[in-house]
Computed example of a mutant assay.
Amino acid sequence: MKSDVADPVKDTSTEDRVESLWREAFLKSYKAMDKELRSHPNLDCFCSGSTAVTIVKQGSNLFMGNIGDSRAILGSKDSNDSMVAIQLTVDLKPDLPREAERIKRCKGRVFALQDEPEVQRVWLPFDDAPGLAMARAFGDFCLKEYGVISIPEFSHRVLSDQDKFVVLASDGVWDVLSNEEVVEIVSSAPTRSSAARILVESAAREWKAKYPTSKMDDCAVVCLFLDGKMDSESDYEEQGFSSATLQSNNHSGNVVESDDGQNSEPCLQRNFTVRSSEEHDQYRRVPVDVEAGENGGTEDQNWSGLEGVTRVNSLVQLPRFSEEKPRP
């Protein structure tokens, strides 16, 4: 006689197997992407690259992978029916102890410049370049032998009816807006199809207000509404998402709303700062203090602090590399 009662052991085993398959898929796809960049003749990725954040929604399951400081957050309702922000990914920067420890084991160096002591950067072992402000990235091949990797951090979350939307955004958004501000902007957008565009425009205004003399970092946003519904007049009906991008080389300041992606080719953009040798001589290093805990990733995640506004994460490119060899 068959029983209608579900076997919790079997269900758990199936869930673990599905999660393992998605983890493997994320690892393979990120590895393939990095390999593709290395072999592409028209992309110079030796001292430039890209962050990434990826999600797959399968029923009530949300699978996520990320490298660098692109971030995913969840807009959800609390017990008081108020919208709250839940950060889904950890920004993978050199100030995380486990990331800094790996880089140093591979002979890379981690320290901050005197004029921005809160921004830890990755440097070659034999020269003060390139100063990458993230610990994982596509491209940036000059640092791949020194601890910078393209292996994604994978995570899984089971969604509930209280979860309303997911926002994926590049660091240009998080540099100037907090998680809570992003959730407020998206949830108050007049239409769902305009949510991503309004968020990018808000980030652009904040850049001009907070960093009037700085070059604005690229701002890319995708909003995924978890009920799958969009505005009736939208081209994205039944797809449940909107997206918008503002690139740092878009001098007009106009936001580009993406189409279905079939008519555009991918491009790699990275905002960077070039410092002269005279300026560089004035900088003093502020090393990061690395203390590896026994619990590894759990302590790192608590230590890093998931909320708040981060400083500009940009690639510092010096005029040239030194001929000096690493010391034995």
Rank of each mutant, 00 (worst) to 15 (best):
N249M: 05
R275S: 02
A209W: 08
Q58C: 13
R109N: 08
K10L: 14
R121P: 05
E233Y: 06
V222M: 09
I86H: 15
T14Y: 05
L224F: 06
D115A: 06
H40R: 13
D95N: 12
M83S: 08
A244S: 10
T273W: 00
L224K: 10
K93Y: 11
E184M: 11
S70H: 01
E184P: 01
A85R: 09
F138H: 14
P125F: 00
K210L: 15
P319I: 11
Q114D: 09
S170W: 04
V56L: 06
L21N: 14
Q58A: 15
C106I: 02
H251Q: 13
E238T: 09
T191R: 14
S20T: 14
S194I: 03
S20V: 01
D140H: 15
D161Q: 11
F141M: 04
D217K: 02
V316H: 10
P94R: 03
E278K: 13
F63Q: 03
E324P: 03
C267F: 11
P326I: 12
K215P: 02
A195G: 05
Q114S: 14
S48G: 10
R205H: 02
V286F: 11
T12R: 11
R275I: 06
S188I: 05
K57V: 14
R105Q: 15
E201F: 00
S202D: 06
K57W: 03
I185Q: 07
P8G: 07
D161F: 03
G59V: 12
K208V: 02
D34V: 15
K164D: 00
F272W: 06
G261N: 15
I185N: 09
S193P: 01
R102F: 09
F26A: 03
N249I: 09
K28V: 04
S276F: 07
S258D: 07
P319W: 01
G59N: 13
S82V: 13
V186Y: 00
M33N: 05
M134C: 13
G293M: 04
S70N: 06
G108N: 15
V9C: 02
Y283G: 04
S243N: 15
L96S: 00
P152Q: 02
F165D: 07
D127M: 06
K164Q: 11
F63T: 01
V158S: 07
E36Y: 05
G240T: 11
Y236M: 12
S39Y: 00
Q262N: 14
G261M: 10
Y283P: 04
Y30W: 13
V288M: 03
I86C: 06
L177A: 04
